[in-house]
Nucleic acid binder design. Structure first.
Lengths: 241, 241, 241, 241
DNA sequence: TATGAATGAGTGTTCATTCAT
DNA sequence: TATGAATGAACACTCATTCAT
């Protein structure tokens, strides 16, 4: 006998379809640090041993490659599995479906972004206005983040369409960062026609989209581009001279 | 979830008329002027009479509604046809396939953007640096454009995945506008660490993404937001005081 | 382009997954009488024209053949479609899934059974105890019903596993008939150790299972068998001499 | 719903040991007596030690629980294994496949039924017509048998679909019992319109199905129900007064 | 003897597209 | 010009069974 039926209402295996809370660290299971403390949420509640962890990592990495090449929508589970050099069935041992895999990746990325946020809020010594180098440091960090997670950041927009849970993570991430930026700006520095909230979001918007457009145009984001954005942001927000 | 997409792998059955080139004027067929308020791109070379034009419009509008509700990927030909209160068969009388419909819509939007570009290049009297109001006028115009075509602008990114021809239209549109912006900036005004090309693109990036993020956050882009962006852009690029 | 994605949460088409109420007459759409007034519930709410009705009938009949040959579980949608000489896609135009098809068939059968029930309750002139011929008439009718719907009756048991809605229809059908039988028995005639409810159910049980077992043993239910059961039932319940 | 069953089309991968014939005594392997209280049928010829025996029992019991909850078709090897608190791999140490497990259970039940048959044939002293109490005793015994093996008896019908070997065991069991009942009836006692063979089968049918229908209706088979059936059978077959 | 991991054939279902009326 | 019906390629997903430890 080979494959077999569903027949009953829904899954039986403990794979807790679609649950994988975002707050639960992926690191707990893979043990593989991503950035410094990886995050992300696989499907199954199974506790993985080292072999399992390795396989899951392979799948996550393969997915990143596949998404990079064809985008999420065009990526078939088959593509991922092929890149990971594993089998179809194995995939479903670790993720309850394609969406679940995406969730895991996005969560990892979101956790990296969280780091950036921490940096941002912690860095500029209390009260002081950031100087050009502060700004540049942060923009540069964002750039690195974007590039590393390009396959995801590139389609942020579209991914948000897919799954409500995903929308929330993304919204959170952006909101939090925009807020942090807004705080840096400060009311007095901001001038009379600037709404700090909006300004913070605008900076984020610029950074995010700029990377996409440059990539789209076939030009990588180089040092000069980063300098340019730094100067723009600095002038726009902090240079009240 | 079950069956699934192609999206990428190209057609299997021969498409009656898979061309629908962008260069071919929509006006030729609809009789509606292209440039001022052009309309979609039908599949066949058929010249449409008034009933036909109406049906085609219904389909284009319906598509916009559908894309707005579910996004391009999740939209089924069925959805469009239902909203337009017409039949499956009729759809293919006007568009050679789903992509063709998308192309038609994007072309419409691109033509609107073209307008904006014309405005931009024409407006600031030769040689002069734009003032705050010039900038605001333009940003405001962009905002209007974005909002009107939200379903498309929202997923720019993702749509570009779908069809090479589409990529080209989008790239063109952005490149041209970024270029025009760059010209405004001018080398002398730009300061030593600004690359005008990059700066132009950055402004575009900010405007484009800001709208999305605001919508995402559930806040519309109001006058204050536009003021804020205007001030930021103005300071960043033209306020060398 | 060919097949296509799901991506979004659930079906979009009006196929009202799984709804198909049992009370809605199949005859309304097929126009094909089954028995005298056919019943059953197809999936889609689409109103069928004559061509559609024909196709749906073909599918229902094909399903009956397929279930007869291999049983519900072992029957593949593919089998049904092949027998009906139509395509996979067409199947899903008429039924939202295999279960839905089963529901339609069971509902048809249940409606036939309903007839039998009507006969039973109407027949024996008010108050009178049924005589041997009455009993035989009824058993014979049941037999005909069973044989015509053998593929379904045979697996009554198992089918009930599949879908809660189905359970209900089946339970109803049996309960109602058992009740009707119980009424025939009457308290005074029944003797001190007979519970009419139980007795009614027991008769039904016997009739139902007898057919299965005979078929299983390779012997059809012939006139003699029917006479035998008639005599047994008559003696057991009405012959208080 | 998605993927789906085979059920019919035979295995593809070679089954280590697909034999597990019914004639081979279970007792040989478990050391547990067959006939009096035999136990399941392992896959390989391995002689089991006490630990092995315990594991196998756990699996058989777990299967019974699982079948009870979801029915054979809907039961996954996984379910059994989980209930038994053992591993997937272990399962195949004791049974060559799912069918093999089923065979083991059915064989156990059949052996119990055999007992009943022995009782039946031995009991009513030679030549004598059974009296009401004889009948009741036997019906009561059958009831106990049914209840104890409900998960199997409930789907007799359906199980017979699965495996030819199984069909044979079941046919045998029923045939033998029906035959024994027929003998009790005796020609002269039977009256002119009764075929003893058919009558025997009819009684069996009634008993078997009655239990199912009562369970289905949510009413257990109580003493009164048994009395009722006893009276019915007694009157129908032996009460020629 | 026990176990977690891997495998992949087999099936249900979707939906773009074509066809006949 | 309009429409309902038909088609079938393409995928996602399940689960029995085997394997390596």
């Amino acid at each position: 006998m080979t494959a077999a039926p569903v027949e009953t209402k829904k899954p039986v295996r403990p794979t807790a379809d679609g649950t994988g809370s975002f707050t639960e660290s992926i690191a707990d299971r893979t043990g593989l640090p991503f950035g410094e403390d990886a995050v992300g949420a696989p499907a199954s509640r199974r506790v993985l041993r080292s072999q399992g962890k390795r396989t899951m990592r392979k799948l996550l990495d393969a997915a990143m490659v596949a998404f990079d090449q064809r985008g999420y929508h065009a990526t078939r589970v088959n593509d991922v599995v092929e890149i990971a050099k594993t089998s179809h069935g194995t995939f479903y041992l670790y993720f309850s479906n394609k969406e679940d895999l995406l969730r895991a990746l996005v969560t990892e990325a979101a956790s990296e972004a969280q780091h950036l946020y921490d940096t941002l809020t912690a860095a500029p010594e209390q009260g002081g206005t950031p100087d050009w180098d502060d700004v540049r440091g942060w923009i540069s960090a964002y750039s690195t983040l974007w590039v590393r997670n390009a396959p995801l950041f590139r389609s942020w927009t579209d991914l948000a369409t897919i799954d409500p849970e995903l929308i929330e993570v993304i919204r959170q991430t952006f909101t939090v960062m925009a807020e942090a930026l807004a705080q840096q700006i400060g009311p007095e520095a901001s001038g009379h026609i600037i709404d700090p909230q909006a300004a913070g979001l605008a900076v984020l918007a610029m950074l995010d989209r700029f990377h996409y457009l440059r990539e789209f145009a076939g030009q990588p984001v180089d040092e000069i581009a980063i300098d340019t954005m730094t100067t723009m942001v600095y002038r726009a927000l902090f240079n009240d001279a």
